[in-house]
Amino acid sequence: MLFEYVLRLGDSPLVLAQQLGGLIAQAPTMEEDVALANVSLDLLGQARALLSFAGELEGRGRDENDLAYFRESHAFHNLLLVEQPNGDFAQTQLRQFLYDAFAIELWTQLQRSSDATLAAVAGKAVKETAYHVRRSADWVIRLGDGTEESARRLHAALANLWMFTGELFLTDAVDDAMAEQGVAPLASRLEPAWRTRVESVFTDARLDVPETAWPQRGGKLGRHTEHLGHLLAEMQVLPRTHPGARW
């Protein structure tokens, strides 16, 4: 179960890092290219630490690359939120903010994990995420309270993404077991803090928190949206084309 949980933990930053990696060299300013690359690198680092750990836990000799490049969609456990397309800059930053606001609560609590490796990963990730969430919140606010066009785009992004936020706080048997063992906080417990932060930023961004729609779900169990397949096809192509090769 720990293996399953750690994989879930690592897959979201992996997918998000991949998404951001594709945006470098087309950001609105060069300064933003540098910023996006920074977030992508941090997330990739978190994913690598977690996937390596998962591979060790599994004990079948799979390393971070085996796990990243040779699993199919149904074996990925990332949140549906992070596989939604980059869209425009408003969607990229809103997706980032909604995820960062969750991740900061998660990593903060995980620092107290009964598992030493997770606690260590969390110790590093919490600092990175503290910076990411400030950055993404700043952008959501500026786009929401900027021009009519930026506000319009932000509203459109919110309509696309909100339905995927419910999944952040859904729990199942794996989560229950982890909470019982003191390994991880129950995700549902993170919701109030997340909401407080989201509401505060949305106020400054002149965004209304939408009515809670039916939360789309399934990512943790490998039931994904159509987007993940394309993302993985691009990410995995080289090792799959050259079986047995080392890079």
Binding site: Q18, G21, A25, V34, A37, L41, A47, E64, M235, A245
Partner: peptide, 20 residues
């Protein structure tokens, strides 16, 4: 997006970031 290992991907992102 097509770097063939996670380490190579990280290194390449860092390189392109340096260029910016």
């Amino acid at each position: 997006t097509r770097a063939p290992s996670l380490e190579r991907k990280a290194i390449l992102i860092a390189k392109v970031q340096d260029e910016a």
